[in-house]
């Protein structure tokens, strides 16, 4: 398992490996020094679980390990697609999976035109990012203009105007943990009072969510659409049924385990053992 910081998730994965008698070596990516001409297949073992908190670190390390013949979960293509909200949306649309209506622009003026098509309120999201960071509710043209002006002074990534419809939904969404295209656990993430966002990092509450046939089906399709592996698939309950709005590449499950009682770290280890050469 490669990591950069050890969260609760990485600790319980290491514990699960120990309990199952699986030899899991922990590699701090910050200590890695790779001579790109060398072969690293033996050093990194049969399969590497990628658990870096930093997306760019994980992406570049995964690319390098795969090029050297090491199997990585999730693989590089999945990390590219699921690590970028636009690429995820494109993959979901290609697979015919219901997802919120999305517009894309590259300048404030065209983004405002896009919003005329989409309507207000709408949600502006950075294409790369997590935990609800810099996700902004565009209530009207005035708030959109003000937020776009700020974005123009930020890193170019934030000048990619990826904007989604604000879906009418209960004050919650559904996070499903999907391993090998199968939903193993799901929670409702209930927005904290006074906040429209449902991120656990912002104080949302977790409750067990029954895995219905509809949820199982849409999450399995979303997993396949981005390339499979270990994923956190986020769905919203729209008036027309479930929509997938995000697929998370290095999913956290700290709140899912106590809410559902499912041994997610054990299932991750079982999956890695299954992939072993």
């Amino acid at each position: 398992m490669v990591y950069d910081y050890v969260r609760w998730e990485e600790k319980v994965i290491a514990d699960a490996a120990k309990k199952k008698g699986v030899d899991l070596k922990l590699v701090d990516s910050k200590d890695v020094s790779l001579l790109l001409d060398n072969d690293y297949e033996k050093e990194f073992g049969d399969v590497v679980l990628q658990r870096c908190l930093s997306y760019f670190r994980s992406l570049h390390l995964t690319a390098t390990l795969e090029a050297k013949g090491v199997s990585v979960v999730n693989n590089f293509n999945v990390a590219v697609v699921a690590g970028n909200k636009l690429f995820t949306t494109l993959a979901l649309l290609k697979a015919g999976i219901p997802t919120p209506q999305t517009v894309l622009s590259f300048a404030p003026e065209s983004a405002l035109k896009s919003l005329e098509k989409l309507g207000y309120p709408a949600v502006l999201k950075p294409t790369i990012g997590s935990w609800g960071r810099l996700v902004a509710l565009l209530k009207d043209r005035d708030s959109a203009e003000a937020i776009f002006e700020d974005r123009e002074h930020m890193f170019p990534l934030y000048q990619i105007y990826y904007i989604q419809e604000f879906v009418k939904r209960p004050p919650r969404d559904i996070r499903s943990i999907v391993i090998d295209d199968r939903v193993v656990a799901a929670i409702y993430r209930i927005s904290p009072s006074g906040n429209w966002k449902t991120n656990m990092a912002l104080g949302a509450k977790a409750e067990n969510c029954p895995i219905t046939k509809e949820l199982e089906d849409i999450c399995a399709r979303a997993s396949k659409a981005v390339g499979g592996g270990i994923l956190g698939v986020d769905c919203m309950e729209s008036p027309d049924g479930l929509l997938v709005h995000e697929v998370n590449n290095t999913t956290e499950f700290k709140n899912t385990v106590p809410a559902t009682g499912v041994d997610i770290p054990g299932l991750i280890i079982d999956y890695l053992v299954k992939l072993r050469k």
Binding site: Y5, S54, Y55, G129, S130, W131, R133, T250
Partner: peptide
């Protein structure tokens, strides 16, 4: 000390 929250940190 650690970086409090990196811009690319998360899931």
């Amino acid at each position: 000390s650690i970086q409090v929250v990196g811009e690319d940190w998360g899931e």
